[in-house]
C-alpha cells in the first residue's frame, strides 16, 4: 500500500475513460525530445524501408500524398505521464508501405532526421495499429511535434511514435533504440506501465 501524503488532495479531472496507471490528462501537447527540433523541408523529405536482403523501398512527399490516407482519432500516452484523449491525426497506415516488403525479421528500428532511433516489433506496426502521420487536428504537423511526418503508434508510449521519421530498418533481434539505451523500456506498453527498463 502506498504511503499517504498528508494534506494532498489532488485535482481529479472527471475523465470519461480510465487512463493507464500513473498518467494524468492534459489539454496541452507537451514535448519530449533529446535534442533540438530538426527542420525537415517537405521537398527534401524521404521515407524508406530497408530489409535484411539489402532491398530498399522509397517514398517522397508526393508519393506519400498520393497514398490513401485515413483520419485517426486516438488517445496518446507519454512516458512523462501526460495523456491526451481523442487526438485527431491524418496519415497513411503502415500496412500500405509494407504491402510489397518481404522480410523474415520480427523487429524494426525506426530512424529519424536528427539521428533519433526507436525499436519496435514489426507486428506492432501492422494491422491498422500504426501510421505515418502528417496532419494534427487538421493542420500540417508542426516541426516541434515531429513534422513534416512522424510515426504514430498510439498503443505504445509516445516516444515509440518517432518524430521526423526517415526510415524503418528491419532487424532479427530487438536491438534497443535511443531512449531504450538510456533507461527506457524495450516495448513500452502504457497499460502495463512499462516505462523504465
Amino acid at each position: 500500500m502506498a504511503v499517504v501524503s498528508r494534506g494532498f488532495g489532488g485535482r481529479r479531472e472527471p475523465t470519461e475513460k480510465p487512463l493507464p496507471p500513473g498518467q494524468f490528462l492534459t489539454e496541452d501537447f507537451p514535448v519530449l525530445s533529446a535534442g533540438p527540433t530538426p527542420n525537415v523541408d517537405e521537398s527534401r523529405w524521404e521515407f524508406s524501408i530497408h530489409t535484411e536482403t539489402g532491398e530498399a523501398h522509397r517514398w517522397d512527399w508526393a508519393a506519400l500524398q498520393a497514398m490513401d490516407a485515413e483520419d485517426v482519432s486516438t488517445d496518446i500516452h507519454c512516458v512523462t505521464r501526460w495523456s491526451k484523449l481523442g487526438t485527431g491525426w491524418r496519415g497513411v497506415p503502415l500496412d500500405a508501405f509494407f504491402a510489397d516488403v518481404e522480410t523474415e525479421d520480427d523487429f524494426v528500428m525506426a530512424h529519424s532526421y536528427g539521428g533519433y532511433t526507436t525499436n519496435l516489433p514489426l507486428d506492432d506496426l501492422l494491422d491498422g495499429k500504426a501510421w505515418l502521420a502528417y496532419e494534427f487536428e487538421g493542420e500540417p504537423l508542426a516541426p516541434v511535434h515531429g513534422g513534416p511526418v512522424r510515426l504514430l503508434v498510439p498503443h505504445l508510449y509516445f516516444w515509440k511514435s518517432a518524430k521526423w521519421i526517415r526510415s524503418l530498418v528491419t532487424q532479427a533481434d530487438d536491438v534497443p533504440g535511443f531512449w531504450e539505451q538510456n533507461g527506457y523500456h524495450a516495448y513500452g506498453d502504457p497499460w502495463l506501465e512499462q516505462r523504465y527498463s
Partner: peptide, 11 residues
C-alpha cells in the same frame, strides 16, 4: 508520487 487519503495518486 503523491497519494491522497482516498487512494488517488498523482506523479
Amino acid at each position: 508520487r503523491l497519494t491522497a487519503p482516498d487512494g488517488y495518486q498523482a506523479a
